[in-house]
Design a protein around this nucleic acid. Sequence first.
DNA 1: AAACTATATCGCAATATTGCAATATACTAA
DNA 2: TTAGTATATTGCAATATTGCGATATAGTTT
Lengths: 110, 110
Amino acid sequence: MGASKTEHFTDKQNAIAIMAKALGHPARVAIIEYLLKTDSCICGDIVNELPLAQPTVSQHLKELKNVGLIKGSIDGNAICYCVDEKALTVLQKFFTHVTTKMGKKKNNCC
Amino acid sequence: MGASKTEHFTDKQNAIAIMAKALGHPARVAIIEYLLKTDSCICGDIVNELPLAQPTVSQHLKELKNVGLIKGSIDGNAICYCVDEKALTVLQKFFTHVTTKMGKKKNNCC
DNA sequence: AAACTATATCGCAATATTGCAATATACTAA
DNA sequence: TTAGTATATTGCAATATTGCGATATAGTTT
């Protein structure tokens, strides 16, 4: 087929997967890191920062926004993008939970 | 084109992206969760747990293994898969770092 | 209004992913 | 060795992603 069988998994598994997938491209990781590193959040600055053409960056921003990892607000002629704390906290909690569970496990057979 | 321009990004950004991408499918999130939840790590049990055919599960396991999120060891006729602490810790640290940085930021314009 | 700036969308080609039936491999048991 | 069990690989169709030129949209400035 080619499409993920999302209906067979839990909402939480799908939510984690959707956000992880959005971060599954280095440009989108770079966007998140840029937004945290700098005080700027202007779309144009992000375009200048990344080694990709403007339409490509715009599309990456759209994907991050679609899954809720960033949000945008109009600032005059420009558009300002910021990371969304809630979404990233969900991922942080998931991985902290995972690593905590790992620490408690004894029978690692591999 | 259709291929990611990975050469333009840092090694760390690519590493995070590759692992995030591997978790960008609910079946692979489910596999990690299953390995943490149960004491079993037998491939056949994972196949039974997931709503996907055996070759499909085998491929998902291969992808998780390729990026180092799990590792496998032969156990007689079966194969035992375990989560790889190091890889998951890299992700946990990344997201903890991100959320920590978020907390310190004041000028959230969105 | 016209010209300019910033961002988004369209349309397309190249490539990657998903899923599975069929088959292959490899180990186990008789 | 033969039969059975467990896992991997192959090959294919359907779909999704990536990247960007061309273009559209929307705000700003003059």
